[in-house]
Amino acid sequence: MPVLLEVDNLQTHFFTPEGVIRAVDGISFDLSAGETLGLVGESGSGKTVTALSILRLVPPPGRIVEGKIEFAGQDLLKLTPSELRKIRGNRIAMVFQEPMSALNPVLTVGSQVLESVRLHQKVSRWEGRDKTVELFKLVGIPSPEIRFKAYPHQLSGGMRQRVMLAMALAGKPDLLLADEPTTALDVTIQAQVLDLLDKLKKNLGMSVLFITHDLGIIAEHADRVAICYAGKIVELAPVRELFARPAHPYSQGLINSIPKMFSGGKDLKLSALPGTVPDLKNLPPGCRFEPRCPRALPLCRKYDSEQKTIRPGHLAACINPLNQ
C-alpha cells in the first residue's frame, strides 16, 4: 500500500506565560492508504494536538515549531492558506469527541451537512439535498428525510456523531482523523458507531487516524498502533504484535492496567503503573517514562532513547525493551 501521510519529527509547543508546554515533542509516523492507525495515550500525551497539527488547526498560544507533514506528496506545513483549505474537509476530514460543540445549535443538521456538501461538490441546492439525504443513509441515520430538519439538541449523542460523520464524509476524504469519536457515547451506541466506521472505511477506501485512550477499541478496530506518552511516540507496531509482545514498558503497563474480563482472577491485583504523567513544562532530562518505569536503568535518567526497530515494522523508544 502506498504511504498517504507521513509525519516526521513534528513538534508543537504551547507558549504560555507559565512556560513552554511541549505538547507534541518529536512525533513521527506514517499511514498507508486504507489503513487504520490507532493513536493511543492518556490525557496530555499529545494525541489530539497531533491531529490538530495535521490540519494546522492548533489553537494559540500553540505553534508548530518543527517537523514535516507530508500528505499525498505535498508538505502541509508549506501550503498557503487557500491551498490548505482545499485539503481540509475535502481530502482530510476530522470528527471530534463532543459532536454537540462541533454543531451549530441554531441550524438544522441537514442544512449544516448540506453546506459542507456544497462546499466540496459543485451541485445545486436540490442535488445537494439529495446527496445529504444519501449521506445520512450512509451513516445509518433512520428516516433521513425527517432528521434533515432536526436541530442538534433534538438528536441523541449517537445520532449527532453520525451527523458529524456525514459532514466529514461530504468531501469524500482520503483521510479521516477521528479524535475519541465514541468516548462520549454509551457502550452499545459506541459499538454501533465503531461498526459503522469500519464499514465506511472498507467501502470508501479511507485511511483513518483513530485517536483514543481505550486499548480495547484499538485491539478491535486498528491495523497498527502508536502509543503516545508525554508528547512522544514510545512504541509503534502492528496491533497483534503490540498486544502479544509489547516492547516498551509503558505499553505493557497500559495493557496490564485494563481489568481482564474473562480471566475470572478475582483477588489478583491490577498491575498499575505507579505515579502520574510528568509536567510537560518541566520534563525529566532522560526518558520521560523513567520515573514510573519498572525496568529503568541508571542510563535512562540521562539519555532519552531514540526509536529503534525491534522487529520489522515494530519500533520502540526504549533502552531496555521487553520481549526482545
Binding site: S156, T188, I189, D214, A219, V239
Partner: peptide, 23 residues
Amino acid sequence: ALFAAVPIPDPSTRREKILVPGE
C-alpha cells in the same frame, strides 16, 4: 448486548459482534 459491546483489548479474539440496534 452490553457484553458484546465491550471492546476487548486482545486482537487475537476479534469476533463478529452481535449488536443491538437502536437507542
